[in-house]
Design a protein around this nucleic acid. Structure first.
Lengths: 141, 141
DNA sequence: GTATATGCAAAACTTTTGCATCCTT
DNA sequence: AAGGATGCAAAAGTTTTGCATATAC
């Protein structure tokens, strides 16, 4: 059970809710999910885990580096598993689909820009917004 | 009164609340403000404008391009006047100070990345998070 | 005068928290 | 057994909305 090791490494007690939430993130058909989404995924599998717990656990996961929290447009947080490979995101403004990309040069330039502004860079969020090819085709609706 | 022209150009009726809110954004000592911040600025000047109106007007301003809405970490939206010069932001995770920068190369690479992913780029948000020089100095507190 | 905008209060949403109970070690 | 985790419900924070009244053109 690799999930147990993940939790231990994160310094978290291996409880049922935490295991289930981690499994839900892994099994989810969509990689980027809100707390509500996770809650619903668990409901579908008859797992009786409260929404408050989902929020608490996702926040702990974020703190321990297991997941990444995003603040896309729309007000609510979305989460994704933190695989070691860093990447940025492009979100379709019409259908919400999320694609990922990464660009080493952009990263380098970000660090430089931070230094120039007198900051020690700790983190960054780069979100592109646009129309995915499917939505671009159907201008209507 | 240049503000009147701004509103007309934006296709908005020139009402007192809209003028006052626009003026507040211009006069604000801090460039990046939340709806609540605008509301308080107006209160200080004895302007009796409801918070709901502030939200409505800021959203209209966003739609018409007069202001830009940001979703920094922390859950609530912050707004800034949309001066023609585009720039990105770096936010101090400790004191909340916001600095601005711009990098033409990053912009170019964003457009390319979007194309590569099959998207038509419409907008982007690049937020850097770190410690400003003041907060980096005082590691305590 | 007519359509639109505003204020107020209530509602809608997302996220957090207090507290009694349950689970992990 | 002891401390931390969970569930529930209530609260807190932000943003939206319904509706009567006021304002701009």
């Amino acid at each position: 059970m690799p999930e147990i090791d993940d939790l231990k490494k994160a310094g978290l007690k291996t409880t049922q809710p935490r295991l289930k939430i981690l499994a839900a993130l892994e099994k989810s058909p969509v990689r980027h999910v809100s707390a509500e989404d996770v809650f619903k995924l668990l409901l579908e599998e008859q797992e009786d885990i409260g929404l408050a717990t989902v929020y608490r656990v996702l926040t702990q996961f974020e703190t321990s580096g297991l997941v990444i929290r995003h603040n896309f447009e729309g007000g609510r947080s979305v989460f994704e598993l933190n695989d070691a490979d860093h990447h940025d995101h492009i979100v379709c403004v019409k259908c919400g689909r999320v694609a990922e990309f990464s660009d080493h040069d952009i990263e380098k330039r970000q660090k430089k820009a931070a230094e120039k502004a007198g900051f020690i860079l700790q983190d960054h969020a780069l979100y592109l917004y646009g129309l995915c090819h499917k939505c671009a085709r159907q201008k209507n609706a």
